[in-house]
Design a protein around this nucleic acid. Structure first.
Length: 482
RNA sequence: GGGCCCUUCGUCUAUCGGUUAGGACAUCAGAUUUUCAAUCUGGGAAGAGGGGUUCGACUCCCCUAGGGCCUGCCA
């Protein structure tokens, strides 16, 4: 279940001469947030750009939320998005011993201490500190261990109170934090389990991560983590903090905006290559380039070109990009995707579905912004006979309408060129022969071809339906409305 | 409350002291047209506000305003 994927064929192995190692470190909460997906994309692009290595670390130290199913969701999300890793995933929980060892090391060095404050005392101190506009302070920072063994304690970093900590961020530039603003963060909980900030530092260091590219929300953590690196005597990696993705209204992206997980986007009919292109453009740019291939993005990607301001998700533009990639997509692949949509909708799937889709998809794919739309556009070709004759069609067929449809059926069955162009010509000649405009032909033909669904222009619809089906639909209506 | 980050058309962005501030999506108008879509042509649309620095600021500095993140024995 949790095995590494083989590197896809055609992609070069990591260049051992490149020192760059990046990672994405999601926590298995049950979904893969789109913001995490973009962070992963940037890490992937940078690793590929430099010939470096791209790694996955599952931050599963929260044993409550971390389940095998949730971990699988993450793997599936990245696989769908098309991001590949260069090694098997690292599970943070499995490395707890390493984290504890690092804490012990800091304790031994005197750069960490045991804090015996009770949760209640801590809560009080937090309240006082906030009121006074300062960080929390533990009385145990410089005090000897209390008498009587067995008192529970957490291990805290003994952070410097003087001076400043500098984070040289590749996106934000130099960011200075006053050390008295940074608190003695907890390294080990009372149960001995490592906390996030400790685990991240130890894992990034031991995995050889050279560039920590992650969300903006970790910029403050970068300062705290820098302190841990120093306490351990390690050099920190390069940091690059990406601005967050917000919803169209500027607020933090959430379910409320219609989608927040990559599975949501997949379910809404977006193609992974479209999402990659759109996401890359959100917060990064290469001049005026809007539509570009993975290869181009990889060759162009520089952290220096990452934008520093947060971006809003724009459905309209995502749709536009997706439409572009749908046009480019292979028809058979689209047919498969449409079929999945039909299945999930429990829609009617005629026995000759494959042939119908093969004929109709190339005709209507130009106008589809999502696979969901494509499934709608193709519906007219999936309807089985007989076509329902509604009041509107009945009205159109009244009087000379029926006679005209009869003559049209004849003209169509005589047609030798059943292509979209051929049909356009046939229709035009027919209208001329009738001495009327196409406006007199559309109302009687369209409902029959559309069969209650949305249909493309008459000629395209005829072509998409195919000679046999189109003629049959007309004949049945003809014999039905005597 | 405190710390940190951010601020160019509605949106994503280009500009890296001197431009009629460019492009894309969206939007509007026109063309095309058997509906819708697509397509083509054209138009409107921006440097948050205030101070500096400079011969010259969107660009550099400061202040204000607004938005965001962090401030957990979550990650």
């Amino acid at each position: 279940m949790l095995r590494p994927r083989a590197p896809p064929p055609g992609r070069a192995m990591p260049d051992p001469a490149s020192p760059v190692v990046t990672r994405i470190a999601p926590s298995p909460t049950g979904k893969l947030h789109i913001g995490n997906a973009r962070t992963a994309l940037f890490n992937w692009l940078y690793a590929r750009h430099t010939g470096g290595t791209f790694l996955l670390r599952v931050e599963d130290t929260d044993r409550e939320r971390s389940t095998a199913e949730n971990v699988e969701v993450i793997f599936e999300g990245f696989a769908w998005l098309g991001l590949d890793f260069d090694a098997a995933p690292v599970f943070q929980h499995a490395r707890a011993d390493r984290h504890r060892a690092a804490a012990a090391e800091m304790l031994a060095r005197g750069s960490a201490y045991r804090d015996y404050m009770t949760p209640e005392e801590l809560a009080e101190e937090r309240e006082r500190a906030r009121a006074e506009g300062r960080t929390i302070r533990s009385p145990w920072r410089d005090a000897p261990a209390p008498a009587g063994a067995g008192k529970p304690f957490v291990v805290r970093l003994k952070a410097p109170r003087e001076g400043e900590t500098l984070v040289e961020d590749l996106v934000k530039g130099p960011v200075v934090f006053r050390n008295d603003q940074l608190d003695d963060l907890i390294l080990l909980r009372a149960d001995g389990s490592p906390t996030y900030n400790l685990a991240v530092v130890v894992d990034d260091h031991e995995m050889g991560i050279t560039h920590v590219i992650r969300g903006d929300d970790h910029l403050n953590n970068a300062a705290r983590q820098t302190l841990i690196y120093q306490a351990l005597g390690w050099g920190p990696p390069a940091f690059a903090h990406l601005p967050l993705i917000h919803g169209p209204d500027g607020a933090k992206l959430s379910k409320r905006h219609g989608a927040e997980a990559v599975s949501d986007f997949a379910g809404m009919g977006y193609l992974p290559e479209a999402l990659r292109n759109y996401l890359a453009r959100l917060g990064w740019g290469h001049g005026d380039d809007e539509i570009f291939s993975d290869a181009q993005a990889i060759s162009w990607f520089e952290i220096a070109d990452v934008v520093s301001a947060p971006a809003r998700l724009d459905w309209a533009k995502l749709n536009h990009v997706n439409q572009h990639y749908i046009r480019l997509a292979d028809d058979a692949r689209l047919a498969g995707l449409v079929d999945e949509v039909l299945k999930s909708r429990e829609a009617h799937r005629p026995p000759d579905l494959a042939e119908r889709l093969a004929r109709a998809i190339p005709v209507v794919k130009e106008g589809a912004k999502t696979i969901l739309e494509l499934a709608d556009l193709v519906l007219f070709a999936l309807k089985e006979r007989p076509v329902a004759v509604d009041e509107k069609l009945k009205a159109a067929l009244a009087g000379e309408g029926r006679e005209r449809l009869g003559r049209l059926a004849l003209a169509l069955s005589d047609a030798s060129d059943w292509s979209a162009e051929g049909m356009a010509g046939t229709l035009k000649r027919f209208a001329e022969g009738e001495g009327v405009g196409l406006g007199k032909v559309g109302p009687i033909l369209r409902p029959i071809l559309a069969a209650g669904a949305v249909a493309p222009d008459l000629a395209s619809a005829l072509f998409a339906l195919g000679r046999a089906e189109a003629l049959a639909r007309i004949q049945e209506v003809l014999s039905h409305v005597q």
